[in-house]
Nucleic acid binder design. Structure first.
Length: 842
RNA sequence: GCCCGGAUGGCGAAACUGGCAGACGCACGGGACUUAAAAUCCCGGGUCCUUAACAGGACGUGACGGUUCAAUUCCGUCUCCGGGCACCA
């Protein structure tokens, strides 16, 4: 059939028309203030305004938008906002490169990306837009910081910190990936000793871990990653006495162990090279000092390379001995490069017989290896004679352990910790891998930390009434290593809020992850000038469990999502919010890749959303990113794939152009109950499709199969165009109305065009999601496969809902079945009504 | 090393609760329409074997084994790919 001019699907023209109409109604996607409807908060992670959206964004937002529109159509009061994570280094780098002020650059990027989003047709409530680099927003970062400071949750300390030489700033532990900077994957992070602001996230370590159990709507993968990150470990502290003080660090070494039950097998102590007491021990011994320095260097290098697990174990004996409080024996004290400074106490007792690392080390240096645990399963005598060391099992019992011999490991751990505590040389304890969050950044483009240094009063917080501390616009941005704000005297020099004397401002700015830790609360009450938000409004949108659905990339599984959880708990303890957790359901979508690899400029495999929209239209770009793979899996972008989707949209369009007849009086009539076979088939397929699409939206979010289902329906009606039977106009009307509704969340432009074409009006967000009629979806007759010994041999047609007996009878009467079972004995006939028949023969 | 995913035609994938493997789409091949092309519409297709053809048969969801009348689906062992954690005491 030839295509006439009017039948050609012109995405550009259609989308432009609706784009203009939607622009003229800014309240279209606004959440309702006082609504009787149930609420639904759907959120996608806000982008960094780099200048242009990439396909990963399009995919993320296409998923969120489809869900938001679906919920609107189901009668929910939907909150679907968008904003900009707009502080951060790229703006400064761009400033240096192009000599453009970061603010200007950022705001220009926001403008162009917002345009892209609008062009893609995403239904955001722009009246709630949050831009984190504006004082209206970041003043509340400062306010929260002051509140944390008041409660001792924000504090300053000098410590070893991660320094990225590319960023010229400090990074949080979470921002170091395999020893490299998270933004510069080839740049090793250096360790520097600096005075920094920290947020006491560890106060919530236990709760952050425990509440992971409640997050049933989160991917298990993310929960596991957070669990590992928090790294809770139960163990004991035990003091080993050095028999006299060695210096300022004291006269005892406290070790952390999870296996206090093996303490009778401890044959040395191992200290981290940077353990404070090591300095005292080396004293004037230059030889020892240089050996220790060597170990420090090895360890730092390994950390920078990100391969601390692979370095060869080295150590040096300090010449000192310490007393094991359980045995009363003294053991040599060593310094070893495999002991971490910042985990536990930076000191361990070495039990070579029951720890692989200690074993390796002891073998190398000829240290004593003493068996103190026997595995439950082994033959004691044989094991004693020829132990296969080391064994680290907990499923065993103690030997050679004085009064504790014979006790099983688990019990011994409790008893020995209690014993140590009673005797005053130890106690049970819990340690975490999670460290406090270092938030100081020696950069310009971030929230100024609202603190002042006064010669007289020391560190003084800025008064709440003086917020915001405005980030100055005119700054000469350089990458010298100090904060650029140091070179802005009007900013730097201030007066002390306490004594009024001259003072200096803190020039470090906040980590941008502060911005994203609470931005989703601000959306709920984005224009509040008196407070970060109104608690009652939050109570409405967040309920008891938080955002109904959050959607974003898995790369934020630890960083953003753990900081956000921390921030929520802090705000809850302040009484600002009621929910314990920010996000009820989390969805992490897969990456968009091309030619088997992540899109990147280096590879030259980047697909530009603008180009896709220009060539195929926003609907096609969106629909393809939903169709090509289930949303949780990686999506391999194929240019021919989006062409296929465009073809499908064209097919839909032509079906409407040819068959829409809203002026026909029959158009709005109910579909007659008596239908020809072809018409009945279409009607059945329609109701089946409504069911399938709805189920996929509700349940598993497999938009790819939603779209397949609509394609099948369309193929069915195309097939019927050749039909001799007349398809009633009323049925065509029903099919067309429903196709529009099913497509509306995923391809809003075309859906609205077609909606208008069939004589309907109003925005589809306000149209009701279609319901299917189970009776109409049902088949009158069904085909049932018949197997013989599990192999398909025939198919029979029986009336739907036929009883087992009838199905069996028909199956056995079937000619092909008869041939297949001829001369054999029937052992059993399995009939699964309306599914299948299997005849077992011998 | 530990913990999570994943593996199905030439490709992206589907099969939701154990019940016809490969829906839908891409690419490909054939046909219709056209002076021609594009666009469009229709048809075909897992592999191998038998057959002139119609048909029919065997095999087939990373590998091997198990449970079951029946396994892509459940269980066990292993391989490869992706991701996370990793001298964490």
């Amino acid at each position: 059939m030839a295509t006439t001019r009017e039948e050609r699907y012109d995405a550009r023209q259609i989308e432009q028309k609706w784009f203009d109409r939607w622009q003229s109604d800014p309240s279209l996607y606004a959440a309702e203030a006082n609504s009787a409807k149930p609420k639904f908060y759907v959120l996608e992670m806000l982008p960094y305004p780099s200048g242009a959206l990439h396909m990963g964004h399009v995919r993320n937002y296409a998923i969120g938008d489809a869900l938001a529109r679906y919920m609107w159509m189901n009668g929910y009061n939907v909150l679907h906002p968008m904003g900009w994570d707009s502080f951060g280094l790229p703006a400064e780098n761009a400033a240096i490169k192009n000599n453009t002020p970061p603010k200007e650059w950022t705001l220009a990027n926001i403008a162009s990306m917002k345009k892209q989003m609008k062009r893609l047709g995403f239904a955001y409530d722009w009246s709630r837009e949050v831009t984190t680099c504006l004082p209206e927003y970041y003043r509340w970062n400062q306010w929260f910081f002051l509140k944390m400071y008041e409660q001792g949750l924000a504090y300053r300390k000098k410590s070893k910190v991660n320094w990225c030489p590319q960023c010229c700033t400090v990074l949080a532990n979470e921002q170091v990936v395999n020893g490299n900077c998270w933004r510069h994957e080839d740049t090793p992070v250096e360790q520097r000793e600096l005075e920094q602001w920290f947020l006491r996230i560890t106060k919530y370590a236990d709760e952050l871990l425990r509440d992971l159990e409640k997050l049933e709507g989160w991917p298990e993968k993310v929960r596991t990653m957070q669990r590992n990150w928090i790294g809770r470990s139960e163990g004991a502290l035990v003091d080993f006495d050095l028999g006299g003080t060695v210096g300022p660090a004291g006269s005892t070494i406290t070790v952390f162990t999870t296996r206090i039950d093996t303490i009778y097998g401890a044959t040395s102590l191992q200290l981290a090279p940077e353990h404070p007491i090591v300095k005292d021990m080396t004293g004037r011994d230059a030889d020892l000092r240089s050996k220790v320095d060597q170990l420090i260097a090895e360890q730092r290098k390994a950390k920078e390379v990100g391969d601390i697990g692979a370095i060869e174990k080295h150590g040096v004996f300090t010449g000192r001995y310490a007393k094991n409080p359980f045995t009363g024996e003294t053991v040599p004290v060593w310094v070893a490069n495999y002991i971490l400074t910042d985990y536990g106490t930076g000191a361990i007792m070495s039990v070579p017989a029951h720890d692989e690392r200690d074993y390796e080390f002891a073998r190398k240096y000829g240290l004593e290896i003493r068996l103190v645990i026997l595995p439950q399963s082994s033959d004691p005598e044989e094991t004693m004679a020829e132990p296969q060391l080391p064994f680290t099992t907990m499923d065993g019992f103690l030997v050679n352990s004085g009064e504790f011999s014979g006790i099983n490991c688990a019990d011994a751990i409790h008893k020995m910790a209690a014993f140590a505590e009673a005797k005053g040389f130890g106690k049970a304890t819990v340690t975490f891998r999670l460290k406090d969050w270092g938030v100081s950044r020696q950069r310009y483009w971030g929230t100024p930390i609202p603190m002042v240094f006064c010669e007289k009063d020391g560190i003084v917080p800025v008064a709440e009434k003086d917020l915001p501390v405005i980030l100055p616009d005119r700054v000469n941005v350089t990458l010298t290593g100090g904060s650029p704000l140091l070179s802005v005297p009007e900013f730097l020099n201030t007066t002390c809020p306490k004594c009024g004397g001259p003072a200096r401002r803190e020039t470090d700015t906040m980590d941008t992850f502060v911005d994203s830790s609470w931005y989703f609360y601000r959306y709920a009450d984005a224009r509040n000038e008196k407070a970060p938000f109104d608690s009652k409004t939050i109570a409405y949108w967040f309920g008891d469990e938080g955002i109904d659905q959050y959607i974003g990339g898995v790369e934020h599984a630890i960083l953003h999502l753990i900081y956000s959880r921390f921030w929520t708990k802090f705000m809850r303890d302040m009484g600002l919010v009621k929910n314990d957790e920010p996000v009820k359901r989390l969805f992490t979508q897969g990456m968009v890749i091309k030619d088997g690899a992540k899109m990147s400029k280096n590879r030259g495999n980047v697909v530009s959303p603008d180009e896709m929209v220009a060539r195929y239209g926003a609907d096609a770009a969106r629909l393809y990113s939903l169709f090509a793979a289930p949303p949780d899996r990686d999506l391999d972008w194929q240019d021919t794939g989006i062409e296929g989707i465009q073809r499908f949209l064209g097919r839909v369009y032509r079906f409407f152009v040819r068959n829409a007849q809203p002026e026909d009086p029959e158009w709005l009539q109910p579909v007659p109950s008596e239908l020809s076979a072809d018409a009945r088939a279409i009607q059945r397929k329609l109701h089946l499709t409504i069911k399938r699409v709805g189920d996929d939206f509700k349940g598993r979010w497999h938009f790819n199969t939603c779209i397949s289902a609509i394609m099948e329906l369309l193929n069915e009606v195309y097939g019927a165009e050749e039909s001799k039977d007349r398809i009633p106009v009323s049925l065509i009307a029903e099919v067309q109305r429903n196709i529009v509704l099913l497509l509306a969340p995923m391809a809003p432009y075309l859906a609205h065009e077609l909606w208008e074409m069939i004589g309907e009006e109003g925005n589809l967000l306000k149209a009701a999601w279609p319901k299917y009629d189970a009776a109409l979806a049902a088949l009158d007759e069904i085909e049932i496969p018949v197997q013989v010994n599990g192999k398909l041999r025939s198919r029979i047609i029986v009336p739907a809902g036929s009883a087992e007996d009838l199905i069996r009878e028909r199956a056995l009467a079937d000619e092909k079945v008869k041939t297949a079972i001829a001369g054999k004995q029937i052992v059993k006939v399995i009939v699964v009504p309306s599914k299948l028949v299997n005849i077992v023969v011998r």
